[in-house]
């Protein structure tokens, strides 16, 4: 759920809509979202699964410090989703373990 009206902060006027891909599925986001906030706004809380026990992890610190929110972006693993702005057409993968580097084109 997005915070639109606020007693102190400005109205969160709807920014330009963009589309990114999560494991191939097209998902809508707003320009200015981080990857993690865009996922959360779409009700997705899991960013990755751990290497040893395949346990889910999501946002913990939201300031780029704890590495719980790592995802694979455009073939590059271990990107901190909470501090990386989401871009139109981005390919995001919920990361499994250490993730995998894909051939960069």
């Amino acid at each position: 759920m997005r915070v639109i009206h606020h007693p102190i902060l400005n109205e969160n006027r709807q920014n330009k809509k963009i589309t990114f891909y999560l494991d191939g599925e097209a998902i809508e986001a707003m320009e200015g979202d981080t990857i993690a906030s865009a996922l959360l706004a779409n009700g997705r809380k899991v960013c990755r699964y751990t290497r040893k026990n395949n346990e889910p992890r999501g946002i913990f610190c939201s300031i780029g410090r704890c590495n719980d929110c790592l995802v694979t972006v455009n073939g590059i693993p271990n990107v901190c989703s909470c501090v990386t702005p989401v871009k139109d057409g981005m390919n995001i993968k919920i990361q499994k373990g250490n993730g995998e580097w894909e051939a960069l084109t």
Partner: peptide, 21 residues
Amino acid sequence: TLPGVMGAGAAQTLVNIHRVV
């Protein structure tokens, strides 16, 4: 470690900066 357990400051960042609950 379950998603949904987070720092209070993380929640603050989400609502006040990213504007998502």
